[in-house]
Each structure stands twice: as C-alpha cells, then as structure tokens.
C-alpha cells in the first residue's frame, strides 16, 4: 500500500473539485465510474506503485460541486480539460473505468494532446445493437451486485454498495446516482455521435473487459477494439463489470 494518499480541493472553472493523489513517479490520471470510487481502493494502489495517480471526483460526486453546469458528457469532458490545465498535465496516460472510460474517450477526441495513451476498463459510451446495457438506475442493491459482479456475494461486491438506507455512505451514493443520471439517463450511458469520432483517437489504447460483464457486454469492447485505430482488447475470465475489484492485479498489470 502506498502511504502518501492525499485529498485536496481545487477550483476548476469555478467548480470546487475534490482531488485524490497517491503514489510516486510520472503522472497518470484515473477517471472514476458511476460508483464514484473517489477514496483509494486497492486498484488505485496498484497503479500508484508505478505512477503519481491523480484521481479527481467528477462534479456532483463525493464533495465535488458544480453539477448544475453539467448537462451532458461533453460538459464533463470540458471540465476535464479545465482540470488538466489547472494541474498543468499534458500528454499523460489516462485510465478510466466504465463512465470514466467513456469520459476518457471523449477527452481524447476533444483535446488529443492531453492524452498519451488510454486504458479503458469496461467502457460505457456506445450503443451496440443486440448487446443492451443493464439497468444501472435501480434501488435494489442485491440486484445491482448481480448486475455488476461475477460473484455478487464476494467480499468486494458487498463492500462497494451500501447495505441499507441507514448506511452512512447513502448520501454519497445518492449523489453519485444523480450525477451519473445527469449525463447518462438519455441517451442511456452513451453518446450517439461517438462512433463517428472514434477514428480520431489515435493514442495507443488498452481495452480491459470482463468476459461476463452484464452491465456493459463484451460486444461493446469488441466494437471499440474494431473502431479505435490503435487498440487491443484484453479479456479477463471469470469476471463481470467490477474489474478493478474482481481482477485488481491482472487489470493493473495490463495497464501499467
């Protein structure tokens, strides 16, 4: 475990933005998922063995503010542009998970010079005919764990979701749902224009997918792999959508 986990707040384009940093070495930006993993999880620590990991909380997640100014994924991508400027980051590797991976692709289209290479884990962003995404906006945590995890009863699955309405994490959970719905309700977790832009993403790209992803089926990874100019798809067996928890070491090894 890396000891130097730090949390601070930046003002980015007028938005109070929570930022976690950890590790040492060259910079890497980690863009989190709809679940809002903004506190250090083992997967962050694995990346931090090789990099200084910058893990911002998107507007509306954790203690980051400014959701009123975010109306779609492109507003979120522009916020990332501002954030990179504030941190004086350019030409750095970006790893994104699910919602965050979609955001990473949008960022690479908008400002290619900011991104040296992409690590996309179980990425949202596409509508693939015949491979519908699961329903993320449900209240039933048991069903949610079944959707996300290969083994919904694993310790990892149980610790990532609140256990009851009285769980102290509930407010943050509800904030994360709202911020996700803001950019992902309709069109559902994708950008219909994205396929027409994928040929512009020329950075080396590693796609990491769980074989048994029920939330964003593997067909989405295959579509990305086929249409991104410089991408390889790595498939993890006995794994669902919860890659950073289910295959922490394997996924990190593919991305460092």
């Amino acid at each position: 475990m890396t000891p130097n986990v730090q949390h601070r707040f930046l003002h980015v384009g007028g938005k109070k933005t929570q930022l976690m940093t950890l590790g040492a070495g060259p910079p890497l930006v980690y863009l989190h998922s709809a679940g809002g993993e903004t506190e250090a999880i083992p997967f962050h620590h694995k990346l931090a063995e090789h990099y200084t990991v910058y893990a911002p909380a998107h507007p509306g997640f954790a203690l980051s503010e400014g959701l009123n100014d975010i109306l779609d994924i492109h507003d979120l991508a522009w916020h990332c542009v501002d954030l990179f400027a504030a941190l004086e980051l350019e030409n750095v590797p970006v790893v994104g998970y699910s919602l965050g991976a979609w955001l990473a692709v949008e960022l690479a289209i908008l400002r290619p010079q900011l991104v040296s290479r992409l690590g996309l884990i179980s990425a949202a962003g596409l509508h693939v005919e015949g491979a519908p995404m699961g329903e993320l906006f449900i209240d039933d945590f048991d069903k949610l764990r079944e959707l996300i995890f290969f083994d919904p009863n694993s310790a990892a699955a149980l610790e990532t979701t609140p256990s009851s309405p009285d769980d102290s994490r509930m407010l943050m959970w509800l904030r994360a749902r709202e911020a996700t719905a803001r950019v992902g309700w309709n069109p559902y977790l994708h950008d219909p224009k994205l396929p027409r832009h994928l040929h512009r993403v020329t950075q080396p790209t590693t796609l990491v997918w769980g074989r048994h992803d029920k939330m964003i089926p593997l067909a989405h990874g295959e579509y990305y792999a086929e249409h991104l100019p410089c991408a390889t798809l790595q498939i993890l067996e006995a794994c669902g959508h919860g890659v950073p928890w289910e295959k922490c070491e394997e996924a990190a090894a593919l991305l460092v």
Binding site: D139, P165, M170, L171, L174, R175, E178, T180, W185
Partner: peptide
C-alpha cells in the same frame, strides 16, 4: 414502485423518504 429516481429531488429529501418507506 420507484418513488424517487436519481436527482428527482434533493439527495437529502430522497434519503428522508427512503427512511419514511
């Protein structure tokens, strides 16, 4: 019946109603 989908009202109101359920 999903009474309060995400963002339908403030997070605090949703949390309150969920307890009210």
């Amino acid at each position: 019946l999903v009474i309060f989908p995400p963002g339908y009202t403030s997070v605090r109101s949703i949390a309150g109603i969920q307890r009210g359920l």
